[in-house]
Design a protein around this nucleic acid. Structure first.
Lengths: 178, 178
DNA sequence: CCGGTCATGTAATGTGTTACATGATTAC
DNA sequence: GTAATCATGTAACACATTACATGACCGG
């Protein structure tokens, strides 16, 4: 079976939910997957085109009163098969996160202690905001009673745990610097 | 002041250490920064060329007996200034890590419980290996007595803490699935 | 009447990986 | 003798972001 990019599989996966248009896909990712997957329209629309060209989804255009036409993509049997076979394949690349904060701290020697502390405090604040966002998304999902809810909550739990570990690290490192 | 890519700043930073050639830069990154920064020769050599063209470093070629000539790059005053000013700039993009494991789990509904468990167990094993690698690097750095050692250990502590949080999450999620 | 939301899409640009090319030395 | 290490570099390709272009509806 042909290989597609992870972005393609991500979109294929989202097409199994009630989100069927490019716009709706973008929204779902921004609202629910944002902590581990991002995407731009510059990827979504060309990928949707590819998906339909490959026969993985069918387009149904619904003309909304006033609003622009909405192109809705429905997975074909082949599309679902491609998605499932990707899900079953073991993961090869466990990517190392690129972290600009750590990069700057790595060269901390060339910076004043004061600036180092500001860097960490700023990072900590961002992590705390992120943590609060996760809790907000969690509450929204719990109220939705979606059948995929359990899996979505798993990913949020991951986000919360790793964010908390990073916050703890900030505190510990700030202590060491002072 | 001109803006360069993070990759350029990373290389500029490494040129402050005793690693001065493309080959040595690659080694340092693979050995010490690998948990939060990766790089390929396809980036290193063109970036070094840019760095010297911009007057941020000077090339000194040393012909090694037998071995290929080694191009060593020494930061100029301008290069050091560019590095320092980047270090002081606050971080704007706190990137969300792209995580293929979470992406697959997000669509867990379309997969058997058995396969989900394998996915998590596999992930956990990889995280544990990673954790052990961090400990090994930590020991190597502690013996080196480098003046930057403190900062390098900070970044490793980050790696260990977040890896441990992810391992804990795997265990908790595996429990919930069973 | 102005900003936000709904809605689709392309082009230019930036960024990064992989594969290829070369070749001597060293350790087993 | 053969695999790993040392050493540099390019070309093709893959992947992603940003800016641009268009335009109607809705709420305040």
């Amino acid at each position: 079976m042909k290989n597609y990019s992870d972005t393609t599989y991500a979109i294929l996966g989202i097409l199994t939910t009630e989100c069927k248009s490019g716009y709706a896909i973008k929204q779902l990712i921004d609202r629910s997957l944002n902590h581990f997957w991002k995407i731009s329209y510059g990827q979504i629309y060309p990928t949707l085109k590819l998906i339909s060209q490959e026969g993985l989804a069918e387009i149904r255009t619904s003309s909304n009163s006033g609003r622009p036409d909405k192109n809705e993509y429905y997975l074909t049997a082949k599309g679902l098969e491609v998605l499932k076979s990707w899900l079953e394949q073991p993961i090869v690349n466990f990517p190392a996160e690129r972290n600009e904060v750590l990069l700057k701290l790595f060269f901390g020697h060339y910076q004043s202690q004061e600036k180092q502390i500001l860097l960490l405090q700023n990072y900590k604040e961002n992590l705390e905001k992120r943590y609060q966002t996760y809790i907000a998304i969690e509450l929204a999902i719990q109220q939705d009673k979606n059948e995929d809810a359990m899996y979505w909550l798993f990913t949020l739990d991951y986000g919360k745990r790793t964010a908390q570990a990073a916050i703890d690290w900030c505190n510990a490192t700030l202590e060491k610097l002072k």
